[in-house]
Write a protein that binds this DNA or RNA. Sequence first.
DNA 1: AAGAATTTAGCAACAGCGTTGCGTAATAGG
DNA 2: CCTATTACGCAACGCTGTTGCTAAATTCTT
Lengths: 366, 366
Amino acid sequence: MTRTTADVTFLRDYNQALVMAVGRTVPTFERSTIVSDTGLTPQAVSKVIARLTADGLIRSAGVRRPRIGKPAVVYELVPDSRYAIGAHVARRTLRLVLVDLAGAVHHSAVHPLPGDFTPEQLLHTLHAGVGAITAGRDLRGRLTGVGIGMIGPLDHEHGMVRDAHGLRHWHDVALREIAEAHLGLPVHLDKDVTAGVTAEAWRHGGTFGDAVLIMVESGIGGGFWLGGTAHRGAHTNAGEFGHTVVELDGPLCVCGRHGCLEIVHNRAAEAGDIARAARVLAVGVVNLLQTLDLAHVVLAGADLLRHPRPYLAAVEQAVHTDVPRADWLTTDVTLSSLGADVIAAGAAMQVLDKQYGVPGLAPRQG
Amino acid sequence: MTRTTADVTFLRDYNQALVMAVGRTVPTFERSTIVSDTGLTPQAVSKVIARLTADGLIRSAGVRRPRIGKPAVVYELVPDSRYAIGAHVARRTLRLVLVDLAGAVHHSAVHPLPGDFTPEQLLHTLHAGVGAITAGRDLRGRLTGVGIGMIGPLDHEHGMVRDAHGLRHWHDVALREIAEAHLGLPVHLDKDVTAGVTAEAWRHGGTFGDAVLIMVESGIGGGFWLGGTAHRGAHTNAGEFGHTVVELDGPLCVCGRHGCLEIVHNRAAEAGDIARAARVLAVGVVNLLQTLDLAHVVLAGADLLRHPRPYLAAVEQAVHTDVPRADWLTTDVTLSSLGADVIAAGAAMQVLDKQYGVPGLAPRQG
DNA sequence: AAGAATTTAGCAACAGCGTTGCGTAATAGG
DNA sequence: CCTATTACGCAACGCTGTTGCTAAATTCTT
């Protein structure tokens, strides 16, 4: 394993990203806002603001007149100064979105994919879809790249799809490399659920605590945001939350174990007992809270969003009653604000995060 | 939430800590070792080595003669240049250890605690125990501080014990503050399992990937090391791994839920069926791997270490057979190398880590 | 109307970091 | 004795955030 080393360019990028994180989450801000939020000196903030203004990422938006004294310059993020395209590769569809620097979704389209599609077929559809997005717009110099969120297992670091579940033609495909060659843009590949949780984190700026995005969509997965970054695990395989056993000696799951959350949940759902399915999911969520002590639980996925109310109610109730000492152990439970776009949008935001997010110095796995 | 800001002193401390992390894990090293391990330039490494030598943290240990050319200076960590004391507060005992900069345990002692002891009683025993350790040794200027590992819930950031499980006199006790006043040393308070996993990480240097320390000792807990730092969660309450449900509608647990890993495991263990207890634990471990994709599983705790072989075998087998695609999804399973000292030693290493470990820029929870 | 008080913001000098360029020390081999 | 090789540091540099101070823009006070 090697850690990243730190030099002065890291300092600059890091502090600059802190300012951007504030700018993303508030309508407007001024120098004193940044000073108190970050602890940087006023002079340092001035330098950062000057750089960001020169890059077109922020702009002045008038002045605020204090009770007395010189008026303060008010700034705002320029959302359309940068864009990224996000792709959600599911089993039968490719969803593409255009996302701006603030995390707003400007365009969303779903393209059908052939059953058991090949890499070539995906790239063809991806290329056409990206072309359709860029065609009507002038994104020259403002399109940061393309993010792809996909089922695993895959290798995020090397941009390789290892063995996508249920897709026969996807063994050790260097998707990032191939897609970059096809599209002529930087490409970022990650697991669908990890991309999804990045969407929630990006839109909340620097203030997003430890979180999980629960995805119920044919399978059940969980994307984790821990300690200020996405948690991918040792082999980009974190998130197989559906394959945790909640019923010893329960029904046999496709993964080979018995009583996985996914199979128990799906049986209830298929029997039409959504309330029970939701309660089973809630047990799993509380398991996560006990294990990881999360601040946010975000619910998403087509199968869940078909019945948002019972799921939300069951999870909220379990979180508030089954976790002891709830007075200070606060965890909020919400539905994903981006609905069906969350994975694709999150994939796009991963590209933005890489460029404009707070950089980490975390080690690569060893 | 506020993130730490980064200035040039952060750069220095960070790169310096990278060098120390290498030094901790190898018997000797030289400038070229650091250059290739970290990616720093030779000149930067020279400056770091000069600083560390001046501080007495490393020293020259001869030269290596290359085939031809000027001999390279060989360096080594000076283990006894810094020490820290670690305390493991359990329900009936206080374990104290003295640990050096390399993570070696120099002294270990167990002091009895009264049943349902009060803060005052603990501090008295702690003070006497620390005195006994420092009495015979000349640790002037080399004792970095005291780390305390304890059952939760507690608040790591503020050094407060919230409501220690099963201890009636421990509600909102500002233990860190009180202990610092008593001992005249910096004190670091953390959950027992989190301290434990820090021991494993510290002794492995910078190369330790995502890991969990499983602790089986009356209760079952898990300490997490994720992304290069301890994972404590939003309220320092991560690690209640024993209170994850593995058997829906199973026996009632003390926590109020049914079928928790802890109660199912303990029933099997109490019935003398260690093999089944170990298999139940292994199911929980695989749940963690599916969720978090960990590189290391470390087993510890008095109840487990009474039967190390069946536990190790059961967990190893489950990890290797129940997690699919094991050829590249490698996870190693080991027993804690520190045995019963792991929590106390880890608490000590948290103090060392704070001073000499790789600093993070991670956000405090919001 | 003029000056004091207050708030904001930037210029200039500075210390400290890693980097770059290059010179020097220490060895083995010819 | 010279050359090739390897190791290593001095000095200058570019860049960072910081510190000290000045200037600008406004309201309040006299």
